[in-house]
Amino acid sequence: MTPHVHIRLTVNDEAIDVAFAPYKTLLEVLREDLNLCGTKHGCELGECGACAVILDDQPVLSCLVLGVECSERRVTTVEGLATDGRLHPLQQTFADLGAAQCGYCTPGFLVMAKALLDEHPHPTRDQIREALSGNLCRCTGYQQIFEAVEAAIVQPVTRPARATASTASARPVKARS
């Protein structure tokens, strides 16, 4: 076995040291070496979008990022979307509006949608369609996903400039649970 490489990176706002086999992609490092299995995979070739994560503010496909290239970088995965014990507004709306059926593509969609709202706080339906066009979903037909993203836009309270700071705002859709 080739010796492991050892890097330090920030995952979901925590500095982490990790050692892994040098051929591994970020996807494999997250799932197998950091036990963050929320990031999924459907092809490992960039053909489905299930493995999307945010890397230094940009959503990318973790299946095509070399682990060795992640030293000193910041990664946000689905596990990092909720803050201070509260789900991200997108997680609330996805849960309430039927945007997650089997839930397998959901982490990738959430990550892409978060990146979209961080950059464009009030996207149009066309912008949402376009921003999510690199993520395949076989369950929903996408419509309830679009609606969930739109529901996360319309906040009852004045939002701060960046969506990332607005996670403490009220839940957009009343849920039972």
């Binding site: 960039g46 940009q58 496909l61 095509l64 690199g134």
Partner: peptide, 9 residues
């Protein structure tokens, strides 16, 4: 080209 995340890469 490809998809949004792939264009980021």
């Amino acid at each position: 080209v490809a998809t949004p995340p792939l264009r980021n890469m």
